[in-house]
Design a binder for these strands. Structure first.
Lengths: 243, 243
DNA sequence: ACAAAAGTGTTTTTTATACACCCATGC
DNA sequence: GCATGGGTGTATAAAAAACACTTTTGT
């Protein structure tokens, strides 16, 4: 009765509802804050707890479609990166499952997303409403969502090191310092020296100087760079390190 | 009607059966063959096609439990590595889904496994029976299983480069040449020079010389090494490269 | 003039790559 | 004694890491 190891042949096939839960990050480059999108639950279970934005998958809808649907219900955004994260499905992970052994199961396919902060508008109508929350100060979440969030943060850090997702989310043109601040905000202060970071990135050859400059208060104006898709495509397969 | 983009709010929540499909690799170190475990389907859909060994998740059973259950129904093995791979769930991926829009859906949570070849016995009773197949010569599989297999092979290659899964599957003691052959079989001939591979691995410091030697035909006897869990644990977090 | 921000260069250490060569055994 | 598989060493190139220094702006 509810025994996880009871897998004898006589057990019936389980019936599942499939939820998609999104771990949506953004980097506030103005204030160097790493943010996570959360919603406050109105209903039981876990009423008044924060949770990851999620939804149940509808008939005719793919998992990825469902992930994009949640996203578009909570925020408006043009620039983002999204990929599947992990699937959580042990019996008992959702209290809505019947105690009855024939009861339905709730499975969560989680998705990882990174969105451009400046570009994102929270949708205020609709319920529950989503809010940005500091990752460093994230609360106890509903269900097993803290575990999913941790998993997502690991993925974010890994992705940043060997794939160009930052450029999906930075403005069209950016300074090398913008890029460095972005990395620092996600990976922590001492992930790399600025000078070495800069040299490494420029040597890779897919950042092109636009010739434009931008001045931000005192100090020398910074050169604006652009991510060159074509130059990057050539390197696509080689193991890249952005560290 | 079966439109993937039909995600309007009126659609009902889909009902899912959840399948677990395993991509099970082994390396035949005697003959340097990379093998994949397949079963021949007896029933429609895809009768007489090979497929990955899979099962539907039962009531009270976790996804991982289901993955281990398939494994144990097809093979007996003591030494293995297993982890979740990816979840495939677009509508229409399984022909058993009703055309009816209210029909049930079939979702596949795939698992990746690496097992010790010499240690593995195929279970001959039971139906359908599993057989080892050369990865390089794998047939057209049922469902979307070729896609899952490709995904699994990518994972295998990546894992080998930065995590010590090979040692889960090699014998307790092994020669550095055994290890090198293992890597070569999976990654291809020219992944690295033997001498450099050897030097790199030994420098990492988690391979301890047992003092034992083994002689294989002509030539100098080879030193037998052992994987030292404790010495490895220290390096756990640092980015490792076994290339 | 000087602080602030951007950008360049140099030095040292470590790692990768490509080899050449020596060692121990069976036949 | 020589082929065979095992093992060591070296020389060069490339990359990582630390840090000093110059340039260009605003005030």
């Amino acid at each position: 009765m509810g025994n996880h190891n009871l897998t004898s042949i006589e057990q019936p096939i389980a019936e599942f509802k499939v939820g998609v839960d999104n771990v949506i990050f953004s980097v506030d480059t103005q204030q160097n804050r790493l943010l996570i999108l959360l919603v406050k639950r109105k209903k039981a279970p876990f009423a008044n707890f924060f949770s990851l934005p999620g939804t149940l998958v509808k008939a005719g809808e793919s998992l990825e479609d469902a992930a994009y649907r949640i996203l578009s219900e909570k925020i408006e955004v043009d620039n983002l990166y999204l990929e599947q994260l992990y699937t959580f499905g042990e019996p008992g992970r959702d209290p809505r499952e019947n105690q009855d052994i024939f009861g339905e199961r709730y499975l969560s396919v989680s998705y990882f997303a990174l969105v451009r902060y400046e570009d994102t508008h929270l949708i205020t109508k609709g319920n529950p409403q989503a809010v940005w929350h500091l990752l460093n100060d994230s609360p106890k979440l509903a269900f097993d969502h803290n575990r999913i969030l941790d998993y997502g943060y690991q993925r974010l850090k890994n992705k940043l090191e060997y794939s160009p997702i930052a450029f999906k989310v930075l403005p069209e043109v950016f300074t090398l310092n913008d890029l460095y601040q972005f990395y620092t905000t996600v990976l922590g202060e001492n992930f790399s020296d600025y000078s070495n970071f800069r040299a490494r990135l420029l040597k890779l050859g897919f950042l092109t100087d636009t010739g434009l400059k931008v001045s931000r208060g005192a100090g020398r104006p910074a050169a604006l760079y652009r991510f060159d898709e074509e130059a990057f495509a050539v390197l696509q397969d080689k193991p890249l390190v952005f560290i």
